[in-house]
Every structure is written in C-alpha cells, then in structure tokens.
C-alpha cells in the first residue's frame, strides 16, 4: 500500500453557506479539510475512526462522521459545522440550551454533540429522553455530561413541538 498520493482534485463545497472552490488531495478526509485546510477547528477529532462522534457535521442536513468521509466525495454538497449554527451573536437554541443545562465540561465533544442533536431532531424519530439517549449514543462524552445533554436536547425538542 505504498502508492504515492495523487495530486489535488478540484472540488466545490458550500461550507456554512459559503461557496468554496478548492483543490484537495484525494486522501484528505472532510474532517482534515475542515480543521487543517479551512481552519474550522470547531469540528473535533476524537478518534479519526468513526468511533466517537466528535467530528459530527451536517452534510445536506444529515449528520455524518466527517472523519469517515473523504472530502472529494462531498463535491457539490453543503456542509454545516458548529461555526455555522449561530446567526451572528444569536446562538442556535441547542447551543443556548447546552450552556444553560451545563451539557458539557471540557467542551471537546460538544460541537459534535450539538451538530448530532441538530441532525437527530431533523430526523424526527425521537419522542422522549430514552429515544434521545439511544439516538445520541454515537457521540461519546468522556466527561460524562450525558444527563445534562439529554435535558438540553429535550428542552429544545419540547419547544419545537
């Protein structure tokens, strides 16, 4: 497996509403594109193997693990990261609820949790706390903020009904 890397491939991508024309090496993941090339470090790397959820972003509205997605395969798609959730100074309701309920400690899993929650609410399959627990279990919080994460999401979910 020692193929030399191929040269950069052209790619258009809307990131947080901004259209970008990029050249990206085929082995670069969406996560590394965001963090290393676009300096959008709000999306976190916790394992690089699809095991922790820290890298969760929304691609065309669907939550995915950015570490498992090659950047070049997102051509023409629209990516929303944690940096794209608030409108100016106004926080997304989930961001505000996370602060209010102390739904994080170190904050490292937090962007992934919040993006994942946005995606989960859009999926519309959660009815109550047990569903939230189940459907948010792809996002590890080593600090153990789970009860407060469930409360924060529950509040926003309730308000949205």
């Amino acid at each position: 497996m020692t193929h030399p890397p191929q040269g950069p491939i052209p790619l258009t991508l809307a990131v947080n509403g901004r259209e970008l024309a990029l050249h990206v090496a085929p082995w670069t993941t969406l996560l590394d594109l965001l963090r290393l090339h676009l300096d959008l470090t709000g999306t976190k790397k916790g394992c690089d193997h699809g095991q922790c959820g820290a890298c969760t972003v929304l691609v065309d509205g669907t939550r995915i693990n950015a570490c498992l997605a090659l950047a070049v395969m997102q051509d023409g798609k629209s990516v929303t990261t944690i940096e794209g959730l608030s409108r100016g100074d106004e926080l997304h309701p989930l961001q505000a609820a996370f602060i209010e309920h102390d739904a994080f400690q170190c904050g490292y899993c937090t962007p992934g949790q919040i993006c994942s929650a946005v995606g989960m609410l859009a999926e519309g399959h959660a009815e109550g706390p047990d569903d939230i627990r189940e459907q948010m279990s792809g996002n590890i919080c080593r600090c153990g903020a789970y009860p407060n994460i469930v409360r924060a999401i529950g509040e926003v979910m309730g308000a949205g009904r």
């Binding site: 470090t41 209010e100 102390d102």
Partner: peptide, 21 residues
C-alpha cells in the same frame, strides 16, 4: 452560574492544543 467559557465551547471558538494554525 453558567460556565463563563460556555459560549466559546458551544460555538467551536475554543481552541485546543492541536488546533492552532
């Protein structure tokens, strides 16, 4: 009191060790 560093953490603005360009 809610965390004073909360906004930085929920907006992704808090930079951790491996995130300085």
């Amino acid at each position: 009191v809610s965390r004073v560093d909360g906004r930085l953490k929920v907006t992704g603005a808090a930079r951790y060790a491996g995130e300085h360009a």
